[in-house]
Amino acid sequence: MKEDFSAQPWDERDPSPWLALYLDQSTPLPDAVKAAWLRDCSSGSRQYLLPFLRPLARTSIILIQVLKVFLPRRWAHSRLLHRLLAFSMNTFVSPEANWLIMRHFHLGSQVLSFVAANAPTPVQTTPLEPTSVDDIKDELFLKHDLNLFNFVIRLNKALRAAGEELRPVPEPDFSMVREPELKLEDMPRGRLNRLDLQSAIEIYTPVYQLLLTDNDFWRASNSLQLDETVAIYCAKILASPEHLVMLNNKHPLVPLSTLRAGHRLVLHGLSTEMLHCLLMRMGSGQIPLPARELARMRQAAEMADSACAPTAGA
């Protein structure tokens, strides 16, 4: 597939679905990210390998769940897991897939920092900003899941203690929202780096389950349903609920089976990219800030009311 999708020939009797998706602007995604995503989606690995991998991976999840009945409850090898993940990403996963995975840690950290910076109470965050695939060895996937749940707990404890809640912020702080300093060109490009993102995730999910405790695996699976929770936080700050339309991992109060965790993880990554892109565009002024317009309307209404109010002694 060509690097520049917009340069692809257009045959009206045989239009390319990838060209249509690339040119479509109904959802917020940077062109470079969308191009990487579509190159990965249109790869031979995803087309021919994924249909065989997915049922095998889901069968493995069931068998491992049975095996876990006979293993000690705290049996886990998190460091081994992350070394295996780093090795396979360096050796087998495509540059586009690796780039999107590495971006996800940065984007997720920035979104949580945005919520924290615009909350009415101070909230601690623990950003994860890996610079190379080898940084995965530092139990990065596990820390990512822990960070998300700990942030939700910290934020809501602080809000409850202060009797506060998230509300529209006319001038939000976007200073932490930026493009990660990660380049697609720097991702591993060996002869075997051909595995697409969805196939890699389907393979990783049962390995993740095997080498972590049941509690860690279930928490990781359930964390995918917090997409809606974090998006609602942002929507409250921005006074922009319509931007929840692309969420698919809901509802957080109804835990889903782990069998579809791999597919849901892909949706989680895409929704994070879209939310981050939306924040970038709002921060740069490309998209008007609903909270700012709401504040102006309220101010105008208050001025109108004060102008119409009878003066003392009238």
Rank of each mutant, 00 (worst) to 15 (best):
Leu112Ile: 02
Asp24Cys: 11
Ser271His: 14
Met274His: 12
Arg39Ile: 11
Lys68Arg: 05
Val169Ile: 11
Met102Cys: 05
Asp216Cys: 04
Glu165Ala: 14
Asn118His: 09
Arg189Trp: 02
Leu253Lys: 10
Leu19Ser: 03
Leu166Arg: 00
Leu226Pro: 03
Leu19Ala: 14
Ser221Arg: 02
Arg54Val: 01
Asp40Arg: 01
Leu210Trp: 04
Leu100Phe: 06
Asp4Ile: 10
Lys137Leu: 02
Glu12Asn: 13
Leu140Ile: 11
Arg13Trp: 09
Arg219Lys: 06
Arg264Lys: 13
Ser199Thr: 03
Ser60Trp: 02
Ala116Cys: 12
Lys68Asp: 00
Ala291Gly: 00
Pro72Ala: 15
Asp40Lys: 00
Pro310Cys: 05
Phe141Leu: 14
Phe92Ile: 15
Ala76Tyr: 01
Ala200Asn: 07
Pro30Ile: 15
Glu202His: 09
Val123Glu: 14
Gln225His: 03
Glu302His: 07
Glu129Asp: 14
Ala301Val: 08
Leu182Thr: 05
Leu84His: 07
Gly283Glu: 00
Thr311Ile: 08
Pro188Gly: 04
Gln198Thr: 01
Tyr204Gln: 13
Phe114Ala: 10
His82Val: 00
Gly262Arg: 03
Met303Glu: 07
Tyr233Lys: 01
Arg103Gln: 15
Asn248Met: 15
Pro55Met: 06
Leu53Arg: 13
Met282Asn: 12
Val66Tyr: 05
Pro241Ala: 06
Arg54Lys: 11
Asn150Ala: 03
Ala161Ser: 12
Ala32Pro: 11
His77Leu: 13
Asp227Val: 08
Ala300Leu: 07
Ala239Gln: 15
Leu29Pro: 01
Leu38Pro: 00
Thr229Lys: 06
Pro168Met: 06
Ile203Lys: 04
Thr125Ser: 07
Arg178Thr: 00
Phe105Lys: 05
Glu139Arg: 09
Leu21Phe: 01
Asp196Gly: 04
Pro188Tyr: 10
Leu23Ile: 07
Leu85Gly: 07
Lys68Phe: 01
Met187Ser: 02
Arg189Ala: 10
Trp18Ala: 04
Pro17Arg: 12
Asp14His: 11
Asp173Asn: 10
Pro170Lys: 14
Phe141Gln: 03
Glu12Ile: 05
Ala7Trp: 04
Pro9Glu: 01
Lys250Val: 04
Leu267Met: 12
Ser240Leu: 10
His268Pro: 11
Ser109Gly: 10
Ala7Val: 03
Lys143Gly: 14
Glu129Met: 15
Arg264Leu: 08
Phe141Ser: 07
Leu21Glu: 03
